[in-house]
Design a protein around this nucleic acid. Structure first.
Lengths: 332, 332
DNA sequence: CCCCGATATTGTATCGATACAAGCGCTGCT
DNA sequence: AGCAGCGCTTGTATCGATACAATATCGGGG
């Protein structure tokens, strides 16, 4: 493999000049540039990124840690992040944490090896008590709520307001007993809790009573788990005419369960999700949802990270906007 | 940031000994190991991966290039690849090619910069004419058909046999006019063509005539495109009682379209897909499909790549097995 | 008590690109 | 002619870890 020195020799210039050509340094005579470029082509020269990284102290790679890349929500988010990074000439390396606290901490630890210029971390398992782990000597952007006091950037979803809008939509469509499919109860503030807050606020403004029996907690937000839970709810004779699901993924599982049980959606129960994953457009019935604009979130996350990589010392929180997408599952 | 030299100084040993400790070299006295380890902790030492990469000529990262990570099939595949790589202490960097030939070639070119130790490339846009581009001086595993003569490893799906089994299943369930939703016609052998071959073989063994009008070609394999196409087919009065979709994604779009049109699945039309994405379990009706065992494929792809990275010169092809998953969309 | 082989440790050169500062040659001005 | 100033080029040191070969240390047998 040809090195910069080989190219320099072939072109009859110094290695430094070759480097200058490669990096588009302004003061290089056109004739030398041409000489160097043709020597590069002749030798099929390729920069050695490892060497450049060592010297520059940058890797050109950012880490993205998500629970599981194959879940539609994270997949779509990752796609947006990768695209945004590509626009800035950065590569994205993906880690899967399986939503476990230990793995999230492990990613933070391993990132210290200067593998990445920065890290975008979707915190799901970590709690407020882990705040110290976030004081790391490299740029981090947290994807999720501002539950940490550490000076890191946050990109958050409009959890409370979005959930509130979702539930209000169910109310507007005539629901009076609205159930919610949500995550396990935790000590920390997390997505479940915030969306539950939105749910309660919406009930309150609608003058509807809050009934704890209607709040169904699940350990995993999978389609399978949601389907199973809906089966249990109906079997137990739980009375509800609306269902707000923590995620679209869960909602898809719920829709499937209603179909199994012969419960007509939206006639008997209206269903709304959260996330706006593409699949929701194609379910039967199609799924109403809250769209948190994850392209904007991804863009902003990369933007904040790049800013930190480039030395900006401030830190901020970005909460994306959202829109309500009304489809068949909450139709008349 | 502490370097190996700092640690050496603090521990009163040479840098080389520190390196030996880090890398688990056998001949290090227990007492020195302890000294070094405690110095490392005291200084909060972290290896500089860039420096190690430069010296070792390895990066510990493999590239994975797929059309779009947010498509369920590639998402699930990527998840499996990342997990398999993690087991071998490798990281995975993801590139999106958007299924375009140019981007696939660009990934091959950029990988030459020794960014990755090897590349797993899902070829969708490239054709047999691009075979020369695959003669690269680093390990590559192609995900897709063995349509290239280049000496690279391939991990392929059981396209012909799987498609054949899918269509035979429709025949067994009583279908006589079986349509297929497939990709655009190309000069090259690709997934579409292979699965079409399976389709024709199945018709033939069943003694059914091949009717070109039943083969519907689409440019993109998206849910939206498939839904639209089914609308057109039905509006045009095309007569069919079975539909084999090139991918589950397309099948989900098709199911949705049938629901819109009031066509009952499976009563009037039976539908089967290919890929076995998770969503298919939860559609209404649930989707019959061919499961190509992508965990095995992912495992094998990483396995082959690692073998090549470690210097094995042979190259081989792996065609995964498959199983038929019969669900409601082909029920009675 | 000395020497030998095995174990343990070290010095030095190197991977390849780039920061930095210094050097060269030319133009144009006085 | 002399010199300042600019455009262009280069030598050298360096980023941090590790390969390699050489040396130091040790325990035990002759």
């Amino acid at each position: 493999m040809a090195t910069i020195a080989d190219v320099a020799r072939a072109a009859g210039v110094s290695p430094m000049t070759v480097s200058n050509v490669i990096n588009g340094h302004p003061h290089v005579r056109e004739s030398t540039r041409v000489k160097v470029l043709s020597a590069m082509t002749a030798l099929d020269y390729r920069v050695n990124v490892a060497a450049r990284n060592l010297r520059r102290g940058r890797t050109g790679v950012i880490g993205l840690a998500v629970p599981e890349i194959h879940r539609p929500y994270y997949g779509q988010f990752a796609a947006a992040i990768i695209a945004a990074a590509q626009r800035r000439d950065l590569r994205v390396s993906i880690e899967q944490t399986g939503a476990s606290r230990e793995n999230e901490l492990a990613v933070l630890a391993v990132s210290r090896n200067r593998l990445y210029d920065g890290l975008i971390l979707s915190t799901v398992g970590m709690g407020a008590a882990d705040v110290e782990h976030l004081r790391v000597p490299y740029p981090v952007v947290i994807l999720g709520e501002r539950i940490f006091q550490a000076p890191v950037d946050h990109v958050a979803m409009p959890n409370v307001d979005g959930a509130r809008a979702a539930v209000r939509h169910l109310v507007d469509r005539g629901c009076r007993r609205i159930a919610m499919l949500t995550g396990a109860e935790t000590r920390d503030v997390n997505v479940s809790r915030l969306r539950l807050t939105g749910y309660r606020l919406a009930l309150e403004s609608a003058g509807l009573a809050y009934d704890p029996a209607l709040v169904q907690r699940m350990d995993a937000m999978s389609m399978a788990a949601a389907a199973e839970r809906v089966h249990t709810m109906v079997a137990a004779g739980l009375d509800f005419d609306g269902l707000f699901c923590l995620t679209d993924t869960a909602a898809i599982g719920a829709l499937r369960a209603f179909a199994d049980l012969g419960v007509r959606v939206p006639a008997q129960v209206k269903v709304i999700g959260f996330d706006s994953i593409e699949e929701g457009r194609f379910t039967v019935p199609s799924l109403s949802t809250i769209d948190p604009d994850h392209t904007a979130m991804a863009d902003r996350a990369v933007d904040l990270l790049v800013r930190r990589i480039e030395g900006d010392r401030g830190h901020e929180e970005f909460v994306s906007g959202f829109s309500l997408v009304a489809r068949e599952s909450t139709g008349d």
